[in-house]
Nucleic acid binder design. Sequence first.
RNA 1: GGAAGUUUAGCUCAGCUGGGAGAGCGCUACCCUUACAAGGUAGAUGUCACAGGUUCGAGCCCUGUAACUUCCACCA
Length: 862
Amino acid sequence: MLDKRYNPKDIEKGKYDTWKERDYFKAGDKSKPKFSMVIPPPNVTGKLHIGHSWNTTVQDIIARYKRMKGFDVLWLPGMDHAGIATQAKVEERLRKEGISRYDLGREKFLEQAWNWKKEYADTIHNQWKMMGLSLDYSRERFTLDEGLNKAVNKVFVSLYNKGLIYRGERIINWDPVFKTALSNIEVVYQDDPGKMYYFKYFIEGTDEYLTVATTRPETMFGDVCVVVNPKDERYKDVVGKKVVNPANGELLPVIADSYVDVEFGTGAMKCTPAHDPNDFKIGQKYGFPHPICMNDDATMNSLCGKYEGQDRYTCRDNLVEDIKNNGCLIKIEDIIHQVGHSERSHAVVEPMLSKQWFVRMEPLAKASLDLQNSDEKIEFIPERFNKIFTNWMTNCEDWCISRQLWWGHRIPAYYSKETGEVLVSEVPPKDMENYTQDEDVLDTWFSSALWPFSTLGWPNKTEDLERYYPLDIMVTAYDIIFFWVSRMIFQGVEFTSKRPFDKVLIHGLIRDANGKKMSKSSGNGVDPIDVIDQYGVDALRYFLTTSTSPGLDTRYIEEKVQSSSNYLNKIWNASRFILLNIKDGEENFEIDENLLDDIDKFILTKLEKTISKVTLNMEKYDFANASTHLYNFVYDDFTSWYVELCKIKLNGEDEKVRHNTLSVLLKVLKDIILMIYPYTPFIAEEIYLNLPTHLESIMKETYPEVEEKFIFEESEEIVVDIINMIKEVRSYKVDNSLAPNAEIKLTLIPTSNLDLNKYLPYLKRFTFASEINISSLGEGNIKVFKFANLLIEDNIDKKELLLKIEKEINRLTKEVERCQKMLSNPQFISKAPEFKINQEKEKMQGYQNELNVYIEKKNKIK
RNA sequence: GGAAGUUUAGCUCAGCUGGGAGAGCGCUACCCUUACAAGGUAGAUGUCACAGGUUCGAGCCCUGUAACUUCCACCA
C-alpha cells in the first residue's frame, strides 16, 4: 500500500538498479520495429549541469514512450573526450601541483588524462542514474575507444585520399595560452575596449607622410606594404613609392588594391600577411613574403629587434611610446571593437599564419545541401532550424582540424625521416623507425561528427549498424548545431551515403530565473542534484520537459518545480484513495459495461479523448502540450469530479455497482499512470506496482490506446450539465454570503424527456440541498441549462430578483443580437463554412431559449 | 552589416489549419468536506507591443515600426 505521503526519495530508491539488472534498457528484440537514438556525448570535463538534465530527459521520455509503443528502442550512451576542454582541466590540476605537461611528457600526461576520464565517467554515470535515464549500457562508447579511433583514422585517410583533407599554410586562430590552433567557431567575439593608433608613415626621402591606423601596432614588424584604393585621389601619387615603417624603419611599398575602403579610417591600410586573414590574401595576390613576428605564446620573436621576448601587449605599449618619441604618433583613439577570444581559454586569439590540417568544406557542404533539397531531407523540429543549418553550410569555410594538443586522436600522418615526405595511413608504416608521426591531434568535433555511426561499429558492417542506422532522432540544443549537428550530417552523408538521422529535435538553453545564462563565473548555476534532493527527480523531469516550448529557451523557476511536485502529489493521493477502496481479496477488475452509468461513461469518454490528444502530441514530440492535456484531465475531470462523484457509489449498498465503479477508477488511474510514466518513471512505477493488475514492472506495459466502445458523447453532455448546475449553486452561495454547506432548496424544471431522478443524489450531495423537486412551479433564482432549468429557492425580495433577471436578459439580448447581426450578414452566409454557420445558428437558438425563460419568469414576478 | 526569435493577466508562459482569450505561481473571500492544507470551493485581473492592410471575421495571415534576446559576418 502507498504511504500516506508522497515521498520522492523513498520511492526512487532501488528502482533504477532493478530496471537495469533486468535488462529493460537493453535493445535487441528483433521481433519489433526498431527505434534508435544516441545520447549527445557529454564532455568528461566535470559534472553535468541542468541543461544536460533537460536534454537527456527529453530523450528518456522518447525512449520510454517508444518502448511502450512496441518499438525495440536503442538509446546508446557515451561520452566525449573533449580534447581541449579536458586537457585544460588536467593541466590545471597538474599546475596546482606545480607540474606542467612538458615536465611529464606526452605518455605520462595521457595517463593522467585517462585517470581524469575514469573519475568523471563515474560521476556522469551516477548522474545518469539519478536522472533515471534508460540507456543501453551494454553499448556504451567513448570517443577515444579503439573502435572509434579506427573510424576516425578511416575517415581521415579517406578524405585525404579524396583531396578533401589537406595540409596547408593558412591564417588560423591561435590560442596563445593553450598554444594550439582553433577552428573559426571556437572563437567567440566580444566587445572589448581598445585603441586605434594613428601613425605617420613617411614617404621615402620626403617630409610628407601617409597616416596609417592600426589597432595592433605590435604586428607592424610583420608588415610588407601599405595598401590604398586605386580610385582614391588622395593617394594617387603615392602608389608605387615607398614609405617608412615607423616601427623598424624598413621601407614598405605602397600598392593599390580595391580591397581597401576609401571611406574607412584614413584610407591607407598596413598589410600584415601573416597576422590577418585579409592581409594574407593581399600578400598572396601580390607575391609578398609573409613574415611572422610572434612566438607560439604570443611573445615577440627575433624579427622585432629589441622587443624580442616581450609579450605582445607589452611590446605594443613600448613600441607606441617609442614611436611617439620619434614624432611619428599622430593620435590615439579609444574604441570599442569586437575581439576574438578562445572559447576555452578566453585568451585573445591571435590570427597567425600556420601550417595546419584542413577539411575542404565545399564538396561536403554541397552534398548536405543537396540532401536538404531532396525527399530524404532531415526534418528539423522546429523547422526554422533547417534554415540556420543551410545558411551556415552555404557560407562555411574550410575547417581547421589539427590541434597542438596531446589529448585526442593523433593525426594518422607519418613523415619520412629521410625525405620528409608524408604518408597518410590508417595504420603506422611497417618501417616506423624511418618515420615520425604528426605530433598533432584532431579537433574533438572530428570524432563527434562520426558519433551516429561510429558508435554502432562503423566501419565494420556490424549487426547494430545494419539494424539501427540511420538513427530515428537526434535531440540537442541549438547552440551546437554548427559544431556538431552540421558535421554529423556531412560526415554521415559522405561515409554512409545516408542521412545520419531522420529528425533533429532542437531545444533551447536553460537560464536562471532572471533570464540570464547560467555560468560558473556568475554563480547562478543550478545543480540538478540539489533540485533532486529537494523535490525528487520526477518533479525535476516533469518541470524540464513540460514548462518549455519547442526550440525556445526556458527559465529555471523553482516554483514550477514545486508545482510539478504538487501535481505528482495529487496523483499519488488519488491513487491512494482508489487503492484504499479495494477490499481484501477483491479481484477481477474487468469493467462490466452493462453496469456503467452516465457518471462512469462521462469519465471514460473524457479519458479516451485525453488518450487521443496526448498520443497525438507525443507523436509530434510536443511533450509540453501532451502533458497539459493529461494535467487538465487529471485535475478537472478525474480528481475534481469523477473521484468525488463516485464516492456515492463506492459507499452505496449495491456491491456490484461498487465493484464496477472501482474497476472504472482503476482503469482510469492505470491509463493516467501509463501516460505520465515517460515523464516521471519513478512515481509511476511505484503506483503501478500497487495496482491489483500489475505486471512485474510498468516497463512491460504498452501505451493506452483509444477504445471507441468507451466513448459516450451523450453521457458526457449530461454529466457536464449536472456539474455546471452544481457549480452554479456553489457560486450562488458565495455571491450571497452563504456557507458552502448551507442548506438550500432546489427545483428542476425539465426541458427534455431525460429522467432527472437518476442525478438527484449527486446534485444533493454537492449542493447540500435539503430538498430537490422536479416540477414546473417554483419561486427563486433561475438558471437555464441544457437538460433542465434550475431554480434556487431563496427569500430575496422581488426587486433584487428582478434586477438579476434583467441583467441576464440584457446579456442574452446582446448575445442574440450579435448572432443575428452575423447571420444576417450576406457576406458571412455566403463565405463562411457551413459548419460555422450552423454553429452560430445553434448558439443563437440556445441564447433565444434562455432568453425566453427569463422573460417568462420576469413576467410572472410582475 | 545579415539573419532568426520574442513581445498575451502582477510574474513565468501556453494559445492548433483565422470563428468569442488560457494555465501555473501570486492575489481576494470562504472551507480542517474521512485521497490530498504540498489541499478544496468560488472569484478578481488583458487596448493580445504599435500602425496599417487582407478578410464576413485577426492574438493568429501580410506590410511596416519599436523594444528586448540570440546567432552569423566583420574593415585596417
